[in-house]
Design a protein around this nucleic acid. Structure first.
Lengths: 233, 233
DNA sequence: ACGAAACAAGAGCGGTGCTCTCGAAGTGCT
DNA sequence: AGCACTTCGAGAGCACCGCTCTTGTTTCGT
């Protein structure tokens, strides 16, 4: 097998092991990942890591992409797994819950994705695709609802002209024909979802809201009302 | 004046100067503040800083408290400066715009307040008071609107019992008698505001929305509709 | 079988937060 | 005014960090 020689296979395993150890360090020690500590845990010398990742930022980028994809998988699976495709509100709730569940299960990785950007770090282009999966899933649900006649498009004159143009262009790039005002509502939902998860994960609900599941579901339901999703059955 | 001797006054000036230099470093170099760098900028040796702040985290805490208070001042001023107290929607928009304006003018400090929490860092109790000022301002607007008869309380049976209890207790701590369902809507507005600012500041609107002012105003208006604020005049 | 490429290890550079010691300078009391 | 006491700035040093360079070994493709 020339396509995967011993060396290539060992290298792939090393890449995976480094990322696994780094992910574990991320979960325990927080965001400031130490290359030397990862190397120590693997019984290597720190300089050896640089055979696999040219810099600490590249390791972080790899972890970020994998985290985006893990979140994207969870979210998209929730959008599809619905028993009743026509129960749009239940599907919306399921997608939001899936994102929150993933974040609660992987808080350090969520902070890596959606926390304050690392100062010197600039997200490479590889990350924008995976990063778009959750919001595209949400807006995709709205498009399906529109196709199935489950929700009515907002009035077209709702947006000021420049914003109308911005959102029309954005909609055409992913969901041609989607009314821009509905896209705005989808983005509002995505913004709200991010805010809810971040507040809960970063401790802003401590000592204020004890029953987080109920709080989350209620707030998601409020925004579902705003978007115009059909009322719960 | 024994109460403020030369030494005490010089010390106070040093505290201020250290914080000023640190704030400047924060703005240019990002969140990873270097004690040695601020000491260098002040012509001091790094160990001398420890006469004024026992650790780097304590310096960060001081900066965080000052930033919370600056944001709180801006937000509360916007809530009071309205020409027409009864135009609740305009006041809500003004408060939201004030928060965004402050964040855009001080992005590094906003990231310090609302970005991912620093791993080892735990927010001391001194920060919770200043941190509550923006959300309390928003909810305070809703209470005023209720008192002035500008908005009607949501149905009382909207919340599940446990969440109703949580939010009633929370409301009684700051706004006795405020309907918990209205408090939930205020928190939704605060969550949305945080999400909108964070997305814009952390680059998630890059290459998607060009006219940020219009986008922000529209989204804030959407949530004002959800809360039940009177329509724009 | 051999040259080329990939690899792990080690030393080293400049940087970090933080501690400790030491001499200088200001403070309060008699 | 003199003296004990406290505060201060400087310096050396510790352990850690990301990263580079060199050296000797192992594996690869031909």
């Amino acid at each position: 097998m020339p396509a995967s020689s011993i060396r290539a296979r060992v290298r792939a395993e090393m890449l995976d092991e480094i990322k696994a150890v780094a992910r574990q360090h991320l979960a325990t020690d927080g965001a400031n990942l130490s290359l030397r500590a990862v190397a120590r845990d693997m019984g290597m010398v720190s300089s050896a890591i640089y055979r696999y990742f040219p810099s600490r930022d590249d390791l972080l980028t790899a972890l970020i992409i994998e985290a985006y994809d893990a979140l994207g998988d969870a979210v998209e699976a929730a959008a599809v797994a619905a028993t009743d495709r026509l129960d749009l509100r239940a599907r919306w709730q399921a997608v939001c819950r899936a994102a929150r569940d993933w974040a609660l299960a992987h808080p350090a990785e969520y902070a890596l994705l959606y926390g304050s950007p690392v100062p010197g770090y600039a997200a490479p282009d590889d990350t924008v695709g995976p990063a778009q999966r959750p919001p595209l899933t949400l807006v995709g649900l709205l498009r399906e609802g529109l196709e199935d006649g489950l929700l009515s498009p907002p009035p077209a004159n709702e947006l000021p002209p420049q914003l109308h143009a911005d959102l029309t262009e954005l909609a055409d790039a992913f969901f041609p024909g989607l009314p821009p005002a509905l896209l705005a509502r989808g983005m509002a939902g995505w913004t709200q979802l991010f805010g809810l998860i971040s507040f809960e994960l970063f401790g802003r609900l401590n000592r204020t809201v004890a029953h987080r599941d109920a709080y989350f579901d209620h707030q998601v339901g409020l925004l579902a009302d705003l978007i115009g999703l059909p009322p719960p059955r």
